[in-house]
């Protein structure tokens, strides 16, 4: 496989702003978000619901319009190996449809409702294959069976004609993955793919994604609210809060030396298995994050986390903090990051 030079990431998102118009005002769901994903690597995007992580992924797919959203600003560049870079925002709808499902594929949170109930799973896989590849119906069917086998569905020759309601949630998510990967995309966006599944099934699906990522050599944008899952699968992490990336960096850095009070709070609020040094001093008051995320229609003037932050000082409420470099590849949006420790 020819890999692009390491200096050019597969996906570059710069200054992305996406808003939704509601009857009560404009909601800036994504506000100046930047990140990049290197080829073959995994970026985990973490945040509470409403933090803008799903809207970010839908923006990359240019699917926010269905919900009444608009991409206001920013650049989304897709650098496929051996091809000139694609400016996603500038593509016309037809060219964008060629990107969707082919170069960038997506799997979603709800396997129970993500499949068309009146199409067989085989037909839904075949549909994806024939949209992007010039193959006959029979060839597509063979490929579909092969994909179903690849995602661990036993006896795919007979199950290919099953309908979604005949499968369990875990099986349906496998089918979703088969459909998403049937065209060997360069980037897989996984939007909380394990949240709706039982714990035992979650681990299987994560394993599957990791295995197929290696096989296909694709990058993964993994969206979740679960830091534990991120620790397992991601190379880099971006923590989102109220539409912004508040901290980003390599997964080890984020877990061992978080510099944003929100990240620290998230880490404290979940029981983590060993491997982390626990520093008792001064950390008790951050055990749970008090308060609620801000109303998206009335965001605070200063730091968006300040109202819930135990370290907030007067300056925090005055101006929005810039994203500053706290270390190698480690960015943090907090003016007191040097005082933050676990």
């Amino acid at each position: 496989m020819t890999e692009p030079p390491m200096s050019i990431p597969l996906l570059e998102v710069t200054g992305l702003k996406t808003s939704f118009t509601t009857p009560r005002g404009t909601v800036k769901s994504v506000d100046d978000v930047s990140f990049s994903i290197a080829a073959g690597k995994t970026l985990g995007v973490v945040g509470e619901s409403g933090s803008g992580k799903s809207v970010t992924s839908l923006s990359i797919m240019r699917l926010v319009g269905r919900g009444g959203g608009v991409i206001d600003d920013g650049a989304i560049r897709l650098n496929l190996p051996g091809q000139p870079g694609l400016d996603i925002r500038a593509l016309d709808e037809k060219a964008m449809r060629k990107v969707r499902g082919n170069d960038i594929a997506m799997i979603f949170q709800e396997p129970m409702t993500s499949l068309d109930p009146v199409w067989s799973i085989g037909d839904q896989t075949i549909e994806a294959i024939r949209l992007h590849q010039d193959v006959s119906k029979n060839e597509a069917r063979e490929k579909a069976i092969e994909m179903l086998r690849l995602v661990g569905i036993s006896a795919p020759e007979s199950r290919v004609d099953d309908f979604p309601h005949q499968l369990s949630g875990g099986m349906r998510q496998r089918v979703m993955i088969a459909i998403a990967l049937s065209c060997r995309p360069a980037l897989l966006i996984a939007d909380e793919p394990t949240t709706a599944l039982d714990v035992t099934i979650q681990a299987q699906i994560l394993d599957l994604i990791r295995r197929l990522q290696k096989e296909i050599g694709m990058s993964v944008l993994f969206i979740t609210h679960n830091l534990g899952v991120v620790a397992e699968i991601a190379d880099k992490v971006a923590v989102m809060y109220a539409g912004q990336v508040v901290e980003e960096g390599p997964v080890r850095t984020i877990f061992s030396a978080p510099r944003h009070p929100y990240t620290v709070g998230l880490l404290k609020s979940i029981p983590m298995p060993g491997g982390m040094r626990v520093d008792d001093a001064g950390s008790r008051r951050l055990d749970t994050i008090g308060g609620m995320p801000p109303n998206p229609l009335a965001l605070p003037a200063g730091c968006r986390f300040a109202p819930r932050c135990s370290l907030a000082i007067e300056d925090c409420h005055k101006a929005p903090p810039p994203l500053v470099q706290a270390g190698d590849e480690h960015g943090v949006r907090c003016i007191r990051w040097q005082e933050v420790s676990k």
Binding site: M61, R97, G101, E127
Partner: peptide, 22 residues
């Protein structure tokens, strides 16, 4: 408004096909 329609768009299915076949 069903999620599977979003999935279809994400697969790259054209709107006319999404509407009439799904």
């Amino acid at each position: 408004n069903e999620p599977f329609v979003t999935v279809l768009h994400a697969k790259g299915v054209a709107p006319i096909s999404t509407h009439f076949r799904h």
